[in-house]
Each structure stands twice: as C-alpha cells, then as structure tokens.
C-alpha cells in the first residue's frame, strides 16, 4: 500500500494515539474499567495497523519475531514472578499485600505489575498470531 499517501499519513498520525490509549487502558485499569487484556489488544491493533499500511517486512524489522516471542514469555514470567514474590515475602502465591509495607499499596503495586505482564503477553501474542497468518502466502 505504499502508494496510498493518505493512509500512510493518517496511520502515522493515528498510531501514537492508539498506543497512548492502550497505555491509558493499561494503567488506569486498576481504578476503572480496563486492564491488561484490553490494553494488550489495543496495543497490538496499533501495531497491526502499522503492518497493514507499511507492509509485513517493515513491521517485522521494527519488531522481529524473536522479540515478540521473548516479550510474550517475559509477560508471563512477570506475572508469575510477582506471584512468586508473594511466596518469597511470606504470603501465599499471588498475595500482593505483602509486596509493600502497607497492604493497600502492596495490592496496588501487585495488580499494576500483574496487569502489565498480562498486557505485554496479550499484545505480543496478538502480534505473533497476526504475523503468522499474514506471513502465510510467502
């Protein structure tokens, strides 16, 4: 789609906002509706838009397959790591209250990290799936 200048320009303009919105949904998730799942998908959508307009190869160059896979794994590990930290600090698995000196701020921190892990994984997964299918005909 290299010839469609309008699309390219608009997309370039849109994508930062999509990412920004994703981040909003991600980090506001513990106050209102939102969270890692939705944020991850929105983030992936921004990227997929980029790939649609500028081509798979270009997108792959920005985000190589190895990187998405690593991010995917890291997200899960972050999630599990926070859970494990709960054990390390004397609570049960996934007990966030012990993460900080004050239970509420511990909860806050815990859910923040967990959701971040979820978001990373979901985004990476979505992008991976997109690449797998989009890369089929080559």
């Amino acid at each position: 789609m290299n010839s469609h200048s309008i699309l390219r320009v608009v997309a370039k303009f849109m994508i930062p906002f999509i990412f920004l919105y994703a981040l909003y949904v991600q980090f506001h998730g513990d106050f209102g509706p939102g969270g890692g799942f939705q944020a991850g998908v929105i983030f992936a959508v921004g990227f997929i838009l980029y790939a649609l307009i500028y081509g798979i190869d270009e997108a792959r160059r920005v985000l190589p397959a190895g990187l998405t896979r690593t991010l995917l794994s890291l997200g899960v590990l972050l999630y599990a790591g926070v859970g494990g930290l709960g054990i390390y600090l004397g609570g049960n698995f996934l007990n966030y209250s012990v993460l900080s000196s004050h239970p509420v701020s511990g909860q806050h921190l815990g859910i923040f990290l967990i959701e971040f892990g979820v978001g990373t994984t979901v985004a990476a997964t979505m992008i991976t799936i997109f690449f797998i299918f989009a890369g089929q005909d080559r």
Partner: peptide, 15 residues
Amino acid sequence: LVVILPLVTAPICVM
C-alpha cells in the same frame, strides 16, 4: 508450586 513450576518454565523454554 507443583503447578506453577512447569507453567513458568514453558515461556522460558520459548526464550
């Protein structure tokens, strides 16, 4: 732990 251990190891294997 018996559940989490293999679950966590799986993504490490990917990496």
